[in-house]
Nucleic acid binder design. Structure first.
Lengths: 198, 198
DNA sequence: CACATTATGAACCGTTCGGTTCAATACGAG
DNA sequence: CTCGTATTGAACCGAACGGTTCATAATGTG
């Protein structure tokens, strides 16, 4: 056969994802990607075709990890709908605290990409739209279940409440990037949750 | 004396602000700034020193316009605290609808700068921190007044509620950039407001 | 052990970047 | 009218950009 790779493609993708997450697309140079992944330029271009394609795959990798995790929380049949929502908020806050560097969080790559790229890169915009649709659908389901069981307010329909939850989560992410303390993020989540109870 | 300017510095600054708002800092080239302002390179560098300094001034200009407008709404002695908060949310939603291009909003330059620059540009981070502090202070005041008059829930202290309002506004902005319909943004604001009433 | 095949790093490519220089120009004060 | 000053656009600068080329090195297979 031929000479085998000496690096792990999945590991390189994960490293690239973290660079895009921390710096955004435009501020990340191909040199940055080489340093972060430990690969040479030709290995990167051999494996991922272009910076843009690597970004696409990094974003897909992030979405896959993050949304899978959140949908798992929202589908947890062991908990009541409200408990699942509480778990979702707790997960978001915890994650914001975990990715803190120098007093600020890195936020969420999905939010960062929405802000930086959705108006400029139709391909990224499409990925973000499909991801949002999945998350909204899962939220609508759990919110509707909560309304049926009487735990969740019926003052608005599940679609509106799902949009609200999504917006608050995005707001928590931006607040974390703005330097808000973990306790502040928790209180935001708590206020949002209180708004959802019947 | 000497040869006078043929352009309006304030107008050029406003045009530059819109480019940074739409494209972000990194994706905006000095050529883009020349086209948007109608100035030549030397005029831009004569007047604003550098791309970074022009960004700083553009961000300051945005903050000045936006926060002044919001603080005016929050300080309106003619309205009750809750009505002021309602007016603030309405203003945010209306603005998101107004700056829609190609089905998505441009969001808010303050949010965009927080996401793109706060972890990378300490000067921008400082401006954003000071602006956030001003907005939080105004919100605390009106929320505390609402609690005294019984309009606003006392389940959380004014600081926590102010953080919540700020987060939801940021979330509305990101949702607008993600392509949410105006009606969705309105329902988010409505849900947030409902969470604030006693 | 030799071959076919792939990975790799260094050197290279044209372009664009942010920024500067400079000669030509335009104007108000004297 | 002239002089000094400031503005302007075009030409220019070195550096960094994303991306390619290519000679070299490394390997499983026959």
């Amino acid at each position: 056969m031929a000479r085998p790779r000496t690096f792990d493609e999945a590991g390189a993708l994960d490293a690239a994802m973290r660079v895009f997450w921390a710096n955004g697309y435009e501020a990340t140079s191909t040199h940055d990607l080489c340093v972060a992944t430990g690969l040479g330029r030709s290995s990167i271009y051999n494996t991922f075709q272009s910076k843009h394609e690597l970004y696409r795959r990094a974003l897909a990798h992030y979405i896959d990890t993050m949304t899978t995790r959140q949908l798992t929380l929202l589908d947890d049949a062991e908990r009541s709908p409200l408990e699942r929502l509480r778990a979702l908020f707790a997960d978001v806050v915890q994650q914001e605290v975990e990715v803190r560097r120098g007093g600020r969080s890195l936020g969420c790559l999905v939010v960062n990409a929405t802000v930086e790229q959705s108006g400029r890169d139709p391909e990224a915009a499409g990925m973000l739209e499909r991801d949002l649709a999945r998350r909204l659908a899962a939220l609508r389901t759990v919110l509707a279940a909560g309304q049926r069981s009487g735990e969740v307010t019926s003052q608005q329909d599940p679609e509106a409440l799902a949009r609200f939850v999504t917006a608050v989560i995005g707001g928590i992410r931006v607040s974390g990037q703005g330097g808000a303390e973990p306790a502040s993020l928790e209180s935001i989540a708590q206020t949002a949750l209180a708004a959802l109870v019947a």
